[in-house]
């Protein structure tokens, strides 16, 4: 059933966020430490384990795939509720530091990525992206 997939996703999400909160508390930070990342790792592990036992039929996978496919629309809705007005009101200090920081980071990204090993295209397989 599709809901099994969605439920697995939800359980991983909640567990991950909980662990992230506990981690934050343990190291004394007022923030969630990597909750979403931990949830992703949990989901990847759950998929691997369930696949191996054959407990992951295609219908169950669809219960996760649907939400993964909704990702871009959700991000569009996220963009539509950013506080753009406040951002633009920040004045020159905010604008200059933000732009300079982004440019510097982009250069470092380019530097690291150009020195890295070449990659093949095998990673492109198995994604549930609907081509726009």
């Amino acid at each position: 059933m599709i809901i099994y997939g969605t439920a697995i996703l939800a359980i991983c999400h909640l567990l991950g966020v909980y662990i992230g909160d506990v981690l934050g508390m343990l190291i004394g930070v007022k923030a969630n430490v990597g909750g979403v990342g931990i949830a992703m790792i949990l989901l990847i592990s759950a998929r691997t384990i369930l696949h191996r036992r054959g407990w992951m039929p295609a219908r169950t996978e669809d219960g996760v795939g649907f939400w993964a496919a909704l990702y871009i629309p959700v991000v569009v809705a996220m963009a539509a509720q950013q506080n753009v007005v406040a951002a633009l009101k920040g004045g020159p200090v905010a604008v200059i530091s933000a732009i300079t920081a982004v440019i510097a980071c982009a250069c470092v990204i380019a530097l690291i990525n150009r020195t890295g090993p070449k990659q093949d295209d095998t990673w492109k397989s198995g994604t549930s992206v609907d081509t726009l």
Partner: peptide, 29 residues
């Protein structure tokens, strides 16, 4: 009229959808 955008694009749905994309991760990569 667009209050629903807040829910759809809020942190809860955003993170839920992000976690879902992990299904496509190639672990070795």
């Amino acid at each position: 009229l667009f209050a629903g955008i807040g829910l759809m694009g809020g942190a809860m749905m955003r993170d839920f959808a992000i976690v879902a994309t992990a299904f496509e991760v190639h672990v070795d990569e």
